[in-house]
Design a protein around this nucleic acid. Structure first.
Lengths: 104, 104
DNA sequence: CCTTAATTGTAAATAATTTACAATCGTAAA
DNA sequence: TTTACGATTGTAAATTATTTACAATTAAGG
C-alpha cells in the first residue's frame, strides 16, 4: 500500500533531517549547555561549517547523544561512555549506509 | 541484532523530532517565506503555542509539506493540493498511531 | 581537604525568526 | 488589453535564540 511505502523505513527523512541545538535539547532532554560542553570536549561534532553560525545536528549526532546519555545514567564516565558509543556508532553507520545503497 | 533494533523503524525518533523553520526549509527545499505563507492560509500549522515565538514542526508537518510540494509541481493549485494531501495524511496518521500502539 | 571530571551560569555579540505591509508574477476571464 | 485573483516573494524593525568566553559550582575519589 501507498501509506506503508511512505512511512516504513523513512530513510529519506532520516538522512536529510537536520536539527538546531534547541530542538535537540527538547528531543533528547539534554540541555543545550551540556551539548556544547560535549562538543568542546570533542565527543560530538556539529555540522556547522563556519564558526559563529548556529549548530546543526543530523540523525546520527542525535542518536549518539542519546546513547551517551543512557550510559551516563548507568554510571559511566563521559570519556568511557564516548568510547563505548563510538563503537556502537560504527555498527549503526554500517547499517545506514547499507540501506542507502539498497535504495539507489 | 542490536543495531537493527536501533535503526529499523525508529519511530521513537520520528515521534519526538521537532524542527525549526530554517531547517525545514533546508530539508524540504521549500523557502521559509513559502512555509509561512502556507501557514497564513491555514494549510499547515506549526506547533508553536505562544505567538511571536519561533515556529516548530514535527514529522507529520514536514511530510505534509513535501507532499504538497510534489502536487504543486504536478500542476495542482495550492488549495487542491491541500485537499488531496489532507486525505493522504489521514492514512499516514492511522499507520503511525497503529505502530505506536504496537510498541506500548 | 584537594583534585579532577562534569556541569552549569551568564553577559555581550551575533544569528535567525517574527510580524506586517507591500510588491511582483502568471494566468484566465471579461 | 485590462482586470482579477492566486501564489509567491521582498524587506524593515522588533524579537527570539544561539554563540563565545570566562567563571563558578557540584560530586566523587584519593
Amino acid at each position: 500500500m501507498a501509506q506503508n511505502k511512505d512511512l516504513s523505513f523513512d530513510y529519506d527523512f532520516l538522512e536529510k533531517v537536520i536539527v538546531g541545538i534547541g530542538e535537540v535539547a527538547q528531543i533528547t532532554g539534554i540541555p543545550t549547555r551540556q551539548i556544547r560542553y560535549w562538543e568542546d570536549k570533542e565527543i560530538i561534532t556539529s555540522l556547522t561549517e563556519e564558526e559563529g553560525k548556529n549548530r546543526r545536528y543530523d540523525y546520527k549526532n542525535i542518536k549518539k547523544m542519546l546513547l551517551i546519555k543512557e550510559l551516563l545514567d548507568e554510571g559511566y564516565t563521559l570519556d568511557a561512555a564516548a568510547e563505548k558509543v563510538k563503537k556502537r556508532m560504527e555498527g549503526i553507520e554500517a547499517v545506514l549506509s547499507k540501506l542507502n545503497k539498497k535504495r539507489d
